[in-house]
Computed example of a mutant assay.
Amino acid sequence: MQLRNMSIEELEDLEQDIHEREGDNPLYSKKIDIYEEMVRRLRKIVRDSPEEKSYLEYVTRKLVFHLIHYGTYLKMEYQKDDHLAINCLKRALSFDANNPIVAYRLGFLSYKHKDYQKSLHHFQKAIDHDPYYEQKDFRLNETQIVNAHLYLTNSALYIAKETYEGMSKLPFDNQHELPHYELSSLYKSLSENERFLEKKAFYKITEEETATCSKGECDELITHEPRNTIVLYFNDRTIKLVYNDNSVDLGQNHGDILRNLLTKSSEELPATRITLQNFFSSSIVNGEVNRNTYIQAMNRLKTKLRSCDIPPIIQTSNYRRETAYYFDKTLPYIVMFRVDQEIEYLS
């Protein structure tokens, strides 16, 4: 049956069914299609039944989260695709026009591909909307706010540079009458900003500290990783888990969960299906993550760890009558991820 012919209840059942049977092959595209259809249907229902507005907002949030976080993987789960990401971010804006993190990531991708007119537009939107946006999950963190201003400045400087250099190609006889600007300060500002952004492009988290570093430093570390150390690297193409001479690519969900376990869990405060609910947003029923789906996902993650010959570092416990998991801190770790591409990695 086509989605447009299904009731809201049937769409909800289909969403849950897809999540339960997807296993290690997430069906992001199918879930996004379901959420889009639900949002379109609920928008019509809310016109006559305003009490359904909160449910519409809830489903819209799930849709936007999936478009932002998983859109880049619609073609291949383990390999990121900038063009897919851009298309999905544009779709997200059609449902949530003022979302600051969507505008920010569109700005970053436009800047990466040297489309400075678009990057300027998107970064300006991110900066303008962020202070007033109500949903904390989709707001910029402090580092992203600083970077947004630097990217915005550089976008404007690149546009000014290209415009000035284009003046010399104008087919006029009186070019000598044009003003001659001093470009050295402009080039200096561009270079300084680029160096700053490059040096602080990635977070590098260990048990001792959270620091920033360049992509080059991350690539060097993943090539010559320290022995007996878990290295989790969210690079520009894949999410790679490395331990000694072994490595495996992770999907976004497993990468997110492992990052959370390594950096935030402990025996005193283990991770539960409540604290990890952002990573199980499509399996939430009556406000709760499905227990079996949560346990299955954790077991699959443990299998990934074993494939790298990583000792059993994720322990199971009971916390407030919930099955919980925590990293036992028996091995050092390094987690690296790009400042500009994640939603609320530091909280």
Rank of each mutant, 00 (worst) to 15 (best):
S94H: 07
R41T: 14
H129A: 06
Y28C: 02
L14K: 13
S54A: 09
Y28E: 00
A85I: 00
V59Y: 00
K44C: 09
N147H: 12
V102Y: 05
N141V: 11
Y28F: 12
I32K: 03
D137C: 03
L84Y: 01
V146H: 03
H129L: 05
H19R: 13
R21Y: 09
D48W: 08
I32P: 01
D96I: 06
L109E: 08
P50G: 03
L27F: 09
R40Q: 14
H66F: 06
F65T: 06
L67E: 01
D33V: 01
E142D: 15
E57A: 12
D130G: 03
Q124T: 06
E22R: 06
N147W: 02
Y55S: 09
K30D: 10
I68N: 02
H113A: 13
E51F: 11
I68C: 12
N87D: 14
S54P: 00
L140C: 08
E52I: 07
H122T: 04
L89I: 06
K80W: 08
D96H: 08
K125R: 09
Q117D: 14
H129W: 05
A97H: 13
H121G: 03
F95E: 13
T72I: 01
Y116R: 06
M38C: 03
R40F: 14
E51I: 09
M38D: 00
E22D: 13
P100A: 03
